[in-house]
């Protein structure tokens, strides 16, 4: 089987791995690069557990081929952490709001939320719900997550 080298900047670090061309970005991240924080929930792009940022845009990593993101910047929830390992403002808000129960949807939620907040806008709760509608959660009923995003929007990150 032919193998193709894909190189991305993953959470500010250059990462390179060889894989057959049919590997999705999800499989490439989990099986080859050790980014287990990205989860597989459905394989159809519906649940959002596999959401990552590619060049700043949230995508379903299960519905993107690794070979097609060569050279891109990829960000997962670990990439939101500060360099010293402390939580980003958004992550701190999630923690304080009780927005993670089983935590399986959390990585994808954080990525979608971070993209929503990146523009600096202060979305209403309805707008937050609309933006997050593609990330399914079965534990929280979403409310604590909406609380967390609302709070993070009102007092954005102070650069470390």
């Amino acid at each position: 089987m032919r193998r193709v080298t894909t190189t991305v900047t993953l959470n500010n670090q250059q990462v390179r791995a060889e894989a057959p061309p049919h590997y999705t970005l999800l499989r490439w991240l989990r099986d080859l690069v050790g980014a287990h924080e990205v989860k597989e929930g459905c394989g159809e792009g519906v649940c959002g557990a596999c959401t990552v940022l590619v060049d700043g845009r949230p995508v379903s990593s299960c519905c993107v081929l690794a070979v097609e993101v060569d050279g891109a910047e990829v960000c997962t929830s670990r990439g939101l952490l500060h360099r010293d390992g402390t939580l980003s403002r958004l992550q701190q808000c999630f923690w304080e709001a009780g927005a993670a129960q089983c935590g399986f949807c959390t990585q994808g939620m954080l990525i979608t939320a971070s993209a929503l907040l990146a523009s600096g806008a202060k979305p209403s709760r309805e707008e937050i719900r609309e933006a997050l509608r593609g990330n399914l959660c079965r534990c929280t009923g979403y409310q604590a997550i909406v609380n967390a995003v609302e709070r993070a929007a009102s007092a954005p990150e102070v650069p470390a």
Binding site: T24, G43, E44, G45, S60, C62, C63, V64, L65, E68
Partner: peptide
């Protein structure tokens, strides 16, 4: 974009040799 095709492949509903 793959948003129709890749889910089908992931579910075994399409089995192409080449994309």
């Amino acid at each position: 974009g793959g948003q129709s095709l890749l889910p089908m492949i992931n579910l075994g509903l399409a089995q192409p040799e080449l994309l």
